Simulated assay, not measured.
Amino acid sequence: MTGFARVDGHGDGYSWTFEAKSVNGRSLDVRCRMPTGFDSVEALARAEAPKRLARGNVNLTLTITRSQAVSQLRINRALLAQVLELAREIEGAGAAPPRLDSLLAVRGIIEPVEEDETDARERVESALKGDLAKLFDQLVVNRLGEGARLAAILNGHLDEIARLVGGASACASAQPEALREKLRLQVATILGSFPALSEDRLAQEAAILIGKADIREELDRLRAHIHAAREMMAEGGAIGRRFDFLCQEFNREANTLCSKSADVELTRIGLSLKATIEQLREQVQNIE
């Protein structure tokens, strides 16, 4: 859910920079920093964000600089008419007619006209809204690129979980005999010199322990979770919440496997499994 985007623009005497930064978050939280007077742009940003994004803390910043206003020029026709009338009176007294550059040099003949600021602001806001769409497009592309890189990491963790599940399955086949031998040693220690239990009774007790320590269901569920995770990733879209819940189920099965273990090697595999699942869960927090 991390990403960054930037769009620069200018027009009508304004220049601006849009920036968007996205970091991890459990839900979508949009924070805007806009100059005073551009509330409509902020409202549009808050309305558009949920259409493009599902999760993440998104910070939008708009910086605007007002450049020197470019003024248009116009001729003050009323003043020019007065000057020409005075020139004709002077010509009647024998003076030479005034030259054009002399007339234009008279203060006030040519005057600047400021453009209507309201119209300029409206055009700027319209341009800003267009750039806002570009900003979100860039952010989405950036986040998708980050997601593609995370997909490779997630698949690596799932591959490791599958490998550990295979190792646990191999250990599980030896678990009944290990439990039977463990029970035999415990009974021998308790009874000491007393007569040992019959083979039938020992088999019954071993069967009870083996039933309680059977991890085949946990291994089957772990395999099912791996399959579900891969399907979810292939599906795409906003899968972060569902994937996070699936990681909790992964961890539940790993904990049960460790609690049922009667073998050192199986316990080692279970602990490695829990560590890998935790690494998977941490990376899942980074996806939408």
Score class of each variant (00 low, 15 high):
79 L>E: 07
98 P>Y: 08
69 A>H: 07
87 A>N: 09
91 E>C: 03
100 L>Y: 05
80 L>H: 06
99 R>M: 13
98 P>S: 01
99 R>A: 15
112 P>A: 14
90 I>M: 14
113 V>M: 05
114 E>D: 12
81 A>L: 11
105 A>Y: 06
70 V>P: 01
111 E>I: 12
65 T>D: 12
86 L>M: 11
80 L>I: 10
63 T>G: 01
80 L>D: 12
98 P>V: 15
94 G>W: 10
79 L>C: 10
82 Q>D: 14
104 L>E: 11
84 L>T: 07
86 L>F: 05
77 R>N: 12
100 L>Q: 02
105 A>P: 02
99 R>Y: 07
86 L>Q: 14
111 E>N: 00
87 A>W: 06
97 P>G: 04
70 V>C: 02
103 L>E: 03
86 L>C: 04
90 I>K: 03
79 L>W: 08
76 N>C: 10
110 I>V: 15
109 I>Q: 00
107 R>W: 02
92 G>H: 04
106 V>L: 12
89 E>T: 11
99 R>K: 15
93 A>E: 11
69 A>Y: 00
85 E>Y: 03
73 L>Y: 11
81 A>P: 02
77 R>M: 13
70 V>S: 07
72 Q>W: 00
64 I>W: 07
95 A>R: 07
81 A>H: 07
102 S>R: 04
65 T>G: 01
87 A>S: 12
61 T>M: 07
97 P>C: 05
